[in-house]
Computed example of a mutant assay.
Amino acid sequence: MPLFDVYPLYDVTPVSGKGIHVYDDKGTEYLDLYGGHAVISIGHAHPNYVQAITNQVNALGFYSNAIQNPLQRELADKIEALSGCKDYELFLVNSGAEANENALKLASFKTGKKRVVAFKKGFHGRTSAAVAATDNPNIVAPINAQQEVTILELNDVEGVKQELEKGDVCAVIVEFIQGIGGLDEASAEFFEEVDALCKANNTMFVADEIQCGYARSGKFFAFQHYNVTPDIISMAKGMGNGFPIGGILIHPDIESKYGMLGTTFGGNHLACAAGLAVLNTIESENLLENVNEVGAYFIERAKDITQIKEIKGRGLMLGLEFDFEVGGLRKELIYNQKVFTGGAANKKLLRILPPLNIEKAHVDQFFDILKLALKEVEQTVN
């Protein structure tokens, strides 16, 4: 049976990984500076992670949410301790799209309203409401388009004000650092004014931390770079180091009721074991500090590459923007230089999302390779 052909694939077949490297079916080593879309947060096959999952699957891999699962509460307490998000409540799901879907649903339940405000270049997932709030008409089917969504420009405070004052907006959803959109950020003034406008207009402020959260920006959540208090925080990619897990943190002002949200697989025993292994490793290995130190070092090294026109992002969620489209450069990097990097909707941007325990030596290795790759690409173009 053929696979449904929806992904353009590189001709590389990874079969194992260790730390910041992956190895293909021919035994070739690759430097992984993309982490499978920022999913690999503590490195491939981290011993803490392998042991935690092994121990849990040997004991109990799954049972439903109809029973007590102390691992869920342990995970919730650990998220609270490391993030500083006191008094929020946790609902666990399986993916970022599901997290945002439940965030928007919860906002609608809370406010009794149904329109959503989102922003250009934003990406929130591929499920019904999440994809309708995503600024990409190519992935919005007619059944998704029945959702009521208004998409504005980042930094358009007046536009947000006008829409919220109409009285029918249940949620404003925003990535504090855009991922697929190309590492763009709004101003502090914008985020803080939108937060205030939401609170003044009975609208839930949803922080999409699917990619920029979980220590990637240099703080546990990217919204913590600003003076804001989101009503709902969605998270996923870095939570399980590859095991499917997502969740939302819910402000205590939002009251729960039996049956309003639900999931079969969300918060299962294996997912919680993976999530706890990630958080324990972030804490024990001081990975937040490493993100800030190595991220700053990466930016300094990038300033020496004259072809780089702009450096975007924070921490280890970074983008290198050139004055040419980077498709050819990415192919040179993966096929000839053996480095994984990412692209974006901005075709001139190279996206860098390595494991959070990357070292400065890996950064030096990358920039030596990048210089070689740029020479090869320039020779091809010329």
Results as ranks from 00 to 15, higher is better:
Thr13Ile: 04
Val15Met: 01
Lys18Met: 03
Gly19Arg: 01
His21Met: 00
Tyr23Met: 03
Asp25His: 06
Glu29Pro: 00
Leu31Trp: 01
Leu31Lys: 02
Asp32Thr: 00
Tyr34Met: 08
Gly35Met: 03
His44Met: 02
Ala45His: 15
Ala45Cys: 11
His46Tyr: 08
Tyr49Thr: 01
Tyr49Asn: 08
Ala52Cys: 11
Arg73Thr: 12
Glu80Gly: 06
Ala81Met: 13
Leu82Cys: 06
Cys85Gln: 14
Phe91Glu: 01
Val93Pro: 00
Val93Ala: 03
Glu101Ile: 09
Thr111Gln: 15
Arg115Tyr: 06
Val117Gln: 13
Phe119Leu: 12
Gly122Asp: 15
Ser128Pro: 02
Ala132Trp: 05
Ile139Leu: 13
Ile143Asn: 14
Ala145Asn: 14
Gln147Glu: 15
Glu148Thr: 13
Glu148Phe: 06
Leu152Gly: 15
Glu153His: 13
Leu154Phe: 07
Asp156Arg: 13
Val160Gln: 12
Lys166Tyr: 09
Gly167Ile: 09
Asp168Glu: 15
Ile173Gln: 10
Val174Tyr: 13
Phe176Trp: 07
Gly181Gln: 09
Glu185Ser: 14
Ser187Glu: 05
Glu193Tyr: 04
Ala196Lys: 15
Leu197Val: 14
Ala215Ile: 06
Ser217Glu: 03
Phe223Gln: 02
Tyr226Gly: 03
Thr229Gly: 04
Thr229Ser: 15
Ser234Leu: 05
Gly238Ile: 07
Pro244Lys: 08
Ile250Ser: 11
Pro252Met: 09
Pro252Thr: 09
Glu255Asp: 10
Thr263Phe: 04
Gly266Ser: 05
Ala274Glu: 08
Gly275Cys: 10
Ala277Gln: 11
Val278Trp: 11
Glu283Ile: 06
Asn292Val: 08
Ala296Cys: 07
Leu316Glu: 04
Leu320Thr: 02
Glu325Trp: 02
Gly327Asp: 13
Leu329Asp: 00
Lys338Thr: 00
Lys348Trp: 00
Lys348Pro: 00
Ile358Val: 15
Ala361Phe: 01
Val363Tyr: 02
Phe366Glu: 01
Glu376Met: 08
Glu378Gly: 09
Thr380Gly: 08
